[in-house]
Design a protein around this nucleic acid. Structure first.
Lengths: 157, 157
DNA sequence: GTCAAGATGACAGGAGCCTGTCAATATGGG
DNA sequence: CCCATATTGACAGGCTCCTGTCATCTTGAC
C-alpha cells in the first residue's frame, strides 16, 4: 500500500464501509423480496411503474440505469407474469410496461416487509448519528460527482 | 409507497445515498485502474497477492467473495499476463497466484493514481463530517449484520 | 495405514449490470 | 412534405458476482 495522508486514510475507510454496507443492503433487499417471488432489481422496476405504466427507456432514466439493463429485467418480469406490455398511444414501437394484478400483489407484499424492516433498522440507530451519516455520505457523493464530471469533460473533444 | 415513520424515512434516505455513492465509487475505481489495463475487480485481486502469492481460495476468503468469482478474475488476469500460477509446495492441486513483473507495474501505477485521488477527495471534505459519516455507516452495517444473521439462523434447521 | 470429511479447482449456468450495433419509429427544421 | 437526428427495442457479447456439481487432493480420526 502506498503511504496515504491521514485524511486520505479516513476517506478510504469510508469507501470500505460503503462497499460493505452496500453488499449487505443488497442481501437484505433480496431477502425482503424473495417471499414475493422477486429480487431487488425486479422489485425496483415494479416500484417505478406503480404510479403508472411507462416505457422501458423511461424506467431506465428514472432508475439511473442503462436502457438494456431494465429491458432484461422487464422481459423477465413479463415472462413471470408480474408485468405486461400494453399499447402506447404515443409511440407505435415503444410499448408501456404495466403492472398485472399479480405484480401489484407482489409489490404490496414487498413494500409491507420493507416498511417493517426499515422501522426495525431505524429504531435501533440514534437519529443524530443517522442524520450525520446521511449528510456525510451526501457530501462525499456530491464531491465525487463533481470529480467524475471533470474527468468526463477532459476526455471529450 | 407505504407510510413510513420519520425514522424509517431517514434510514431509507441513508440506503439511497449508499446505493448512489457505491455506484460512483465503482465508476471511479474503474477509471483509476483503466489506464493500467485493469478494472476494479482485477486491481483488488492484485492488491491481495502483492504481499505474497496465495491460492485462489485464500484470496477469495480475504476479499469476502465466493471462490469461483475470484477464480474467474484470476484466470482472466493470468491470460492477460498480470499474474501466473506457480507451484505450491504445500498443495499439489492448488497452485498459487503470483504477480508477474507486468502485474506489479500495473498495480503500482493504479496505487499511485488511487493515492492522489483519495487525497483529492479527502482534502475537500470536512474531517469531522467524514468521521461521523464513517461512524454512522459502521453502526448501520453492524446493525444490519446482526439482523441478517438472525434471519439466517431462523432459516436453518 | 485407512478411510471419511473437508478443501480446492474445473466446469456449467444464472442474475444483473454494462457496451455496441442495428432497424424501426418519432420529431423537428427546412 | 422530406430528410437528418434522436429515441427506442432487439440482439449480441462482456464483466463481476453468485450457485451447484464433480473429481482430485489433503487432513485428521481411528
Amino acid at each position: 500500500m502506498p503511504p496515504l495522508t491521514r485524511k486520505a486514510e479516513a476517506f478510504s475507510a469510508l469507501v470500505l464501509e460503503v462497499f460493505q454496507l452496500n453488499g449487505l443492503l443488497l442481501q437484505a433487499g433480496d431477502r425482503l423480496s424473495a417471499p414475493a417471488g422477486l429480487t431487488s432489481a425486479r422489485w425496483q422496476v415494479l416500484g417505478v411503474i406503480d404510479h403508472g405504466p411507462a416505457t422501458v427507456a423511461a424506467v431506465a432514466r428514472t432508475m439511473g440505469l442503462a436502457r438494456q439493463s431494465v429491458q432484461q429485467t422487464a422481459d423477465a418480469l413479463a415472462s413471470d407474469g408480474f408485468v405486461e406490455y400494453v399499447e402506447n398511444p404515443h409511440h407505435q414501437r415503444a410499448k408501456c410496461v404495466s403492472l398485472t394484478a399479480a405484480g401489484r400483489r407482489a409489490l404490496r407484499k414487498v413494500e409491507q416487509a420493507q416498511a417493517e424492516w426499515a422501522d426495525r433498522m431505524a429504531a435501533s440507530l440514534a437519529p443524530a448519528l443517522l442524520a450525520s451519516a446521511v449528510k456525510g455520505i451526501r457530501e462525499a457523493r456530491l464531491r465525487l460527482e463533481k470529480d467524475l464530471a471533470v474527468e468526463e469533460r477532459s476526455h471529450e473533444g
